[in-house]
C-alpha cells in the first residue's frame, strides 16, 4: 500500500501547519497567472523594496527581450497604468505585496518558503518553456 503522502515527500521540510497570512490557493495561482506578475514577484525576491516607477522601467526593459526591439512613451505609459490599476492592486489584495498608492512605494511581504519556491519555479518555468533567446 502506497503511503498517501509519499508523492509530496519532497516538500516535507516545509512547515505546512503554520502557514499564516498567505493567499488562498485561488488567489496565489491567479497572481501567478500573468507573466508580468511572475516577473514582478521574482524581481521582488531579489529587491524587496522598490517603486511602481522602477517596476514599470523593469517590465518595459524585460519586454524588450520578448519583442526584440525598443519601446516608446506609449508603451511605458501602458505598463505604468496596468501596474497601478491592475497588477499591484491584485498583488496587494493577495497580501504578497504592500503598495502605497500615494508614494508609489512597493514592498514585498517576504512570504514563507513554499511561496518563494513557487515564485522561483514559475519564473524558471517561464524561461524554459517560453524559449527565452539567451
Amino acid at each position: 500500500m502506497i503511503d498517501d503522502d509519499s508523492a509530496l515527500s519532497e516538500y516535507e521540510g516545509y512547515d505546512w501547519e503554520s502557514l499564516s497570512g498567505v493567499p488562498s490557493p485561488d488567489a496565489l495561482f491567479r497572481v501567478l497567472s500573468h507573466r508580468r506578475r511572475r516577473r514582478i514577484l521574482w524581481f521582488l525576491l531579489e529587491r524587496p523594496e522598490t517603486t511602481v516607477g522602477e517596476l514599470a522601467d523593469i517590465l518595459v526593459g524585460w519586454e524588450l527581450d520578448d519583442e526584440d526591439g525598443t519601446a516608446g512613451p506609449d508603451k511605458h505609459e501602458r505598463v505604468l497604468v496596468a501596474l497601478h490599476h491592475n497588477h499591484l492592486p491584485m498583488l496587494a489584495e493577495s497580501d504578497l505585496v504592500e503598495y502605497d498608492i500615494e508614494t508609489g512605494a512597493v514592498r514585498f511581504s517576504s512570504p514563507p518558503e513554499p511561496i518563494t519556491v513557487l515564485i522561483k519555479f514559475s519564473y524558471q518555468y517561464e524561461r524554459a518553456v517560453a524559449g527565452r533567446r539567451t
Partner: peptide, 17 residues
C-alpha cells in the same frame, strides 16, 4: 533578469527604452 537596457528621459518624461 532582463538583458541590460537603458531608459531615456528628458525633463522627467519617459522618451524611450
Amino acid at each position: 533578469g532582463p538583458e541590460p537596457f537603458l531608459i531615456v528621459r528628458a525633463g522627467g518624461q519617459f522618451r524611450g527604452a
